[in-house]
Design a protein around this nucleic acid. Structure first.
Lengths: 335, 335
DNA sequence: TTGTAAGCGTTATCAC
DNA sequence: GTGATAACGCTTACAA
């Protein structure tokens, strides 16, 4: 790992060729004499040459960098996606530049500006709620793909799973196990995923001929704390229920804890299903039945698609399926 | 959010000044006439100017970017640190460029090369085990700070907590509660943190006059699975123990699950303490008693220190303390 | 306080 | 196949 400031000229001199030729072998595109190429390569090797990415970008107009806007580095689900994104770009020559929008529109706009100043060749938006106009301006300007959200008019530039049918399946699973009084603790209200998960829940109930009881739908914000609050509210009001569908796994953890605090057993007395299948969920007690979102695959698919787009090729994004992981937090209700 | 390719010349023309002047107001450093500055600023505003970071870096030699080598984006503890790093750089003008070493030396070296090609002004190393020589070459070349690890000869360039005394405290807590047969499920063997946590455990036992029973020390790798395996091994061999100190929280989750599978209650029959205090730990059942590592603070401190270093100032890194969070996974042993 | 001009390390366009 | 040479957009002495 030599760490010097060797430039293209140095190696040109060393190899007795012109800068142009060096540049050619560097970019591998145009044809260079086998022998010449070899000499140049050797010169690079011995001088420990490392191309200056800035000079390259400035001259070529391409940065080989893509901006990745996250909403909160550190959230379990987006971490999976980020992993996938990293994997997806590995070996493509593009480097992801992560910036964090912190769930705030103004912050998001600001970091996007910053990243545009770095002349990224493309943009990956992980979740988040940018105003439509900004979104479209972005899309106009450079290849952009959105992960974890469906946006009208962005067909083929969004990677997401069908939250409605995933939530439908989760709820139906509960119904199949004999549950009828199924509570739901929701995610952040304006959040697209949260709304769709509710819709799926409602639809499953409707299809099973179960009337939706507003007293069983609780607000929440994707946090464990909101799971605790949700259960407490239910209990305090004396609502009877045998199952809870949680907006995500963190909410499920909180719900499970609150239940146990009240001496209510999971799954014997109350069943729980979560959403996301974050890493811990297979190991909590009882192991959580939850909807697995293929986060890694989503990230990787988005990255791959973006690379296609940046190379001017059309891109086809796969339709990814969520999958219900049946573990041990759901039991058949005794009748 | 205008997204055009306006350059310094455009705004120079618009403001009837030279490029140099525009550059001056851009960099805020040298003195510019109040009136002139105002005109230039207005021109920038109206044209939606966004400086080209590459051209800037190429000309100035500074990139205002720092490379952050992570070991595995997505691991709970490093996520906390990353959060802190992002916060720490916010508003400083520097942007972190995250690259992932994947716990592999060759990968790490490769991504470091890549990041050096991007002419980062500094490096932040989050954990990881680079060979000493590479490390020192790096340090020679540019401001570098290591987080989560103590390296001899890098005094004042490492941010870490004292794992030995943290593990000592955790173990002592168990001892204070009357436990004497305390098992430990370790982290990855060569890992510095893992070794120190073992040392702290051993020291606490020794200080309490408890002989260390090799049959109670289990290998592990920081995964939940290794927690399960550890407990199973203990049980299979019929070892008697009343407490388990786990290398991290994931291991603790696994241990707790394995215990429950065997009908052993936590904390009534066996107490557990973890390490890290990842976000879920306060909400699992029972809420986990664990050592809280101030990950966010560590990341932020490292970032702040690096900024100092990059500006040629000396930096003082704070000594951060781990803290035992007593929750509900530890009980007094009945005698 | 402001302007001129020489780079910074590459790529890209022409000739040769 | 290869080599000049002009960009690329900005910073920075050096003058004015």
């Amino acid at each position: 790992m030599k760490l010097n400031g060797t430039t293209i000229s140095d190696i040109a001199a060393r190899a007795n060729v012109s800068k142009s030729t060096v540049s050619r072998v560097l970019n591998d595109k145009s044809v260079v004499n086998q022998q010449t190429r070899k000499v140049v390569l050797e010169a690079m090797e011995s001088l420990g040459y490392q191309a200056n990415a800035f000079a390259r970008s400035l001259a070529s107009g391409r940065s080989m960098t893509v901006g990745v806007l996250t909403q909160k580095i550190g959230s379990p689900f987006y971490d999976m996606i980020m992993q996938g994104v990293i994997q997806g770009f590995a070996g493509t020559g593009y480097s992801p530049l992560f910036v964090d929008g912190q769930w705030e529109e103004s912050t998001a706009l600001e970091v996007i500006r910053a990243v545009l100043g770095r002349k990224v060749d493309g943009m990956l938006l992980l979740g988040g709620d940018l105003p439509e106009q900004q979104l479209n301006e972005l899309k106009e300007r450079l290849p952009t793909i959105v992960v974890g959200k469906e946006i009208p008019g962005w067909e083929n530039q969004c990677v997401y799973i069908d939250n409605i049918s995933a939530a439908y399946d989760a709820t139906k699973h509960l119904i199949d196990f004999g549950h009828r009084d199924i509570a739901i603790i929701q995610g952040i209200k304006q959040h697209q995923d949260a709304m769709r998960r509710f819709d799926g829940y409602a639809k499953a109930l409707a299809d099973a001929g179960i009337e939706l009881d507003p007293g069983l739908v609780l607000e929440g914000d994707f946090s464990a704390q909101s799971g605790i609050v949700g259960i407490s509210s239910l209990l305090m009001r004396g609502k009877s229920f045998t199952a809870v569908f949680c907006a995500n796994d963190m909410v499920a953890y909180g719900a499970r804890l609150a239940l146990q605090r009240h001496g209510i057993r999971v799954p014997e007395d109350v069943s729980i299903v979560g959403f996301d299948d974050q890493g811990e969920s297979a190991y909590v007690t009882p192991p959580l039945t939850t909807v697995r979102q293929p986060g890694t695959e989503m990230g990787a698919a988005a990255a791959a698609g973006l690379v296609q787009l940046m190379q001017g090729k059309p891109c086809v994004l796969p339709t990814l399926q969520a999958e219900l992981k049946c573990r041990e937090s759901v039991a058949r209700v005794l009748r």
